[in-house]
């Protein structure tokens, strides 16, 4: 809750970073995946070209679509960008970070999802409804696991405020806490489910039996699709950054000096690159699971988080 001008500049810088670098991160993941599967990639910058192209394409709306359908892309984009202003990405002291703690942050993502699910049902087709129903199922099972994970982390940091949690970890010596290790594993599983990656959902598929998120967004076109795709990219970057902020924020700037920001950018890039490799390893090694296996997957996340909590009470 500081109002100095430097922190406002940091905040603007952070939002710009998140918004404009998200397609790069998506491109990085796609590039690595192509390499891992011995395919030729379209290049690191292809997501930018896709989004740019879509902005100039005609929007084809279903005859039946209402204002909800047309408003949803803007809403999803707006809520995701707001989340980007809240999560500490380059500095622990971003002023907007205090406007919502991690529980409210999860709810902001839920708000975006609420509208996406409505839009999926709006066109009046079977696919959209299927996507909405499945997406909401995955989300409703991910939520308790997420809360358990948050609970465990908040036990260690005595806070649910994101900047405070990050601040505590940055300023404490690097040590292995079993509770945080369990919470990290749980968080990773939840992040996979929330961002719709393999093995829960396949972002590259358009096969009706396996789609979750894609089915929900199937009817979008033109600039609407561009916004949805962009927001999806931002969300992936944000979950990666959230993981970094909660579990490995070392190197992140704690003030607004130029030097610390440079270090922050360098470490952030390195960490994101590593996370990209991890995502690609998971996605190439695993197959997408059946949709009714997802409860077990998220149940495992819940149990891991619970174990983390128990180990905090017993060991720390």
């Amino acid at each position: 809750m500081t109002n100095s001008s430097s922190s406002i500049i940091v905040e603007c810088l952070q939002v710009a970073t998140v918004v404009f670098l998200a397609p790069l991160f998506t491109g990085w993941v796609r590039l690595l995946k192509c390499r891992a599967q011995a395919r030729t990639s379209a290049g690191l910058l292809q997501p930018y070209r896709d989004i740019y192209k879509l902005f100039f394409k005609e929007v084809a709306l279903a005859e039946n679509a209402s204002w909800i359908f047309r408003f949803t892309p803007y809403m999803v984009f707006g809520a995701t960008v707001m989340a980007g202003a809240i999560i500490p990405v380059i500095s622990t002291r971003a002023p907007l970070s205090a406007t919502a703690d991690i529980i409210a942050l999860v709810a902001i993502f839920a708000l975006a999802r609420f509208f996406s699910a409505l839009a999926g049902m709006d066109a009046g087709t079977a696919f959209g409804g299927m996507g909405s129903s499945r997406e909401m199922m995955v989300a409703s099972l991910a939520e308790p696991a997420m809360l358990m994970s948050v609970f465990t982390i908040s036990l260690v940091n005595r806070s649910t405020s994101l900047s405070q949690m990050t601040h505590v970890i940055v300023n404490s010596p690097i040590m292995l806490r079993p509770s945080l290790a369990f919470a990290l594993l749980a968080f990773a599983l939840i992040a996979i489910a929330e961002t719709g990656r393999i093995p829960v959902d396949n972002p590259a598929t358009h096969l009706e039996l396996t789609m979750i998120h894609e089915a929900m967004c199937l009817e979008f076109s033109g600039r609407h699709l561009a916004l949805i795709e962009w927001a999806k990219g931002i969300k992936l970057l944000l979950f990666a950054s959230l993981g970094i902020a909660l579990f490995a924020p070392w190197g992140m700037a704690t003030g607004g000096t130029l030097q610390s920001l440079v270090i922050s950018y360098v470490t952030l890039t390195a960490k994101l690159a590593v996370i990209g490799v991890a995502i690609v390893l998971i996605e190439t090694r695993l197959a997408k699971m059946r949709i009714f296996r997802v409860p077990e997957f998220l149940g495992a996340a819940f149990l891991l988080a619970t174990l983390g909590m128990l180990s905090y009470f017993m060991l720390e």
Partner: peptide
Amino acid sequence: AERASYSAPIVFIGIFAAVAVAWLAFH
């Protein structure tokens, strides 16, 4: 404030501003 804070008006303004910018830029 160290424990948890939430500012509904600022979150509202933030989301509204982001939606408005996206709308003006792309609509």
